[in-house]
Design a protein around this nucleic acid. Structure first.
Lengths: 170, 170
DNA sequence: TATTGTTATACTCTATAACTATA
DNA sequence: TATAGTTATAGAGTATAACAATA
């Protein structure tokens, strides 16, 4: 080993003493995602499944290609996700009569009920848990800030890239 | 397949029409982490390496066990991370003379310089990029909200759990 | 015997690319 | 030939558990 050693005392290292907004957002965002994951696990659902279910409910009738593009994932990955929801009888693949290569995805009645009666309340409770510590006015204010940031970053309203390989401590 | 089909029209599905704060935090957080990952990649560094480097700079002299516990990762994973930083001559393992089982981690001079002159500016630029769209007063206000949330959620100031298996679309 | 750090192994998740069918 | 969906394979990243050294 070459290069001497320093730092008998704590060193700041160029980064601000207290974490900035970007770091806090990443930290809290990861925490929120982990909490949500734990909550939906009690319904035997993964976050990815929950997200797809919500997307199909919000914009039914789309092809798998369109959905995969919207989520920024390869179509091959979507297949297994769709399979898992179809196995539970929550969504349904319907052939497009005009072009039999396409499938169009729709919620089943069961899926609609699950989304509205099971997943919805869990998402609401999750949101409340994360916002604990902020009063109503502050939550509105925070939402405005976050929406502005999201718009500035070009993020699509209902979709987030929980797919990139990050993993980032401290 | 049993269970009829519904949803000829878009369906809200119990979740709020516009994403709530928790969803926005997760979405923006993942985006911020991805941006940071891209930025530090230009320095040939992973987010995990950057985080460890900052942690060692902030609290030098800790054992690997202590750091692993703080980051919430298994010690075996930390070994490779420490190896990669030691290979670059940025940090150093020093034997504890009183208990030769322990190592204590310190920055080298080179690591101190890299942290201050390379990584620091990148982190600052990253923070500015994420906060684009908010003026100075709003950034301060946002930071206050985020710090309050982090405290309420019991998050340790410098450490975030970018380790759980989430992956969550929509 | 307990603890620190390390190595070895196995498992999960994901993307890439080959394959089938429709057009 | 091109496109939608599927299947198969391989790679990265991670945790679990066995191991060696020190106490």
């Amino acid at each position: 080993m070459m290069g001497g050693v320093s730092a008998k005392r704590p060193i700041d290292g160029g980064s601000p003493r207290r974490p900035g907004n970007a770091f806090l957002l990443a930290q809290i965002g990861a925490h929120a995602a982990a909490c949500f994951s734990q909550r939906v696990a009690e319904l035997d659902v993964t976050p990815a499944q929950a997200g797809l279910l919500r997307l199909v409910g919000r914009e039914p009738g789309q092809s798998q290609q369109a959905i995969a593009a919207k989520l920024g994932i390869p179509p091959s990955r979507l297949v297994l996700l769709v399979d898992s929801l179809e196995d539970r009888d929550w969504i349904e693949r319907r052939r497009n009569p005009h072009d039999r290569r396409h499938y169009a995805l729709y919620l089943t009645d069961l899926g609609t009920r699950f989304l509205g009666q099971q997943l919805g309340p869990v998402a609401t409770a999750h949101n409340d848990e994360i916002c604990a510590g902020l009063d109503e006015a502050e939550r509105v204010q925070l939402q405005e800030f976050l929406e502005r940031i999201a718009a500035h970053q070009g993020l699509v309203p209902g979709v987030h890239p929980g797919y990139r390989h990050s993993s980032e401590p401290t």
